[in-house]
Amino acid sequence: MKALPSLAKALAWLAAVYAAMFAFDSSGLANPYWLQVFELACITAISALGLNVIYGFTGLFSLGHAAFYGIGAYTAALTLKSLGVESQPAFLCALLAGAAAAALVALLVGVSTIRLTSDYLGIATLGFGIIMKVVFDNADSFIPRLGGARGMTGIAKMTTLPWAFVLLGGSLLVIRNLVHSSYGRALVSIREDEIAAGAMGIDTFRYKTAGFVIGCAFAGLAGGLYAHLYAFLHPSNFDFFKSVDVLVIVVLGGLGNMSGTLVASFGWVFLLETLRVVLPPEYVEFRWVLIPILLVVTMLARPRGLLGIGEFRFLRGGAGR
């Protein structure tokens, strides 16, 4: 019966931080640019936590995470536009629709490709990502509102700091509880040794598909928030490089480490933005020369992830306490 107080405590923390965020957001003290960067970092973290479920905990190599992010983004934007009202409940519906659409597509992709072994699964998901990019590019030929290669405009700016932050907190809570449940233990056991897990009576196919679908649903949720943050969507926001971005974050944070993913997401997003501000305009291009060097050096020095930190206390499981 320890679960209930711990949940209450987590919710209380969330509420307190939410109140602080809300006060900060409406006080006008914050620089709107950095506020937007912070929101983007929250969104990126939700998506990366999803990939962490897929790759970090279940061990499924996915190179197409951005495609599900994109499906969520386009679905949410289209849903809110179709509803015609820009209210908070409608926005919530749109976000859930985005997550659901990503989960549904992930189910179809998962059922057909999840049998493939490591690298082949990576290539199949990479291929799916490129197919989705082509679909987004041509989306205007079947739904004109999606804008296709010209980009989708006229999306309401609904994502605020409380939205991004609360959904990140909620995602963390859900994933923490998932990972420390018997369901999550099954996923981890598949990552460690699939044959042994099967021998222990775990339906590996079903659990792997479930892990994949859940992770992609978080990508879809993050995508919906992203769509309503910048109010503009373009297929190039969901290409192969974006899948790589999330993968880099998950690996830097350490596979199967939620706190690491969290820190790496914020670090990555803020590093990119800081370099944009710090470098003089004529040297902004050096940003993408520096980052790969940092990446390679980091991997050479810390091949098991940059942080290697233990989980934050509120993310730890109950068993050890």
């Binding site: 790589v244 993968l247 880099v248 690996v251 596979l255 291009e285 050096f286 993408w288 020369v289 980052i291 790969p292 060097i293 990446l295 390679v296 991997m299 050479l300 091949p303 098991r304």
Partner: peptide, 28 residues
């Protein structure tokens, strides 16, 4: 240097090298 490391480390390094070559050669 990464041959004994987990495979994902070499993969990320390969992506890093790839980005480096692209953006470094794109400099004026």
């Amino acid at each position: 240097p990464l041959r004994q490391a987990p495979r994902i480390a070499s993969l990320i390094t390969a992506i890093g090298v790839s980005l480096f070559l692209e953006y470094f050669t794109a400099l004026n």
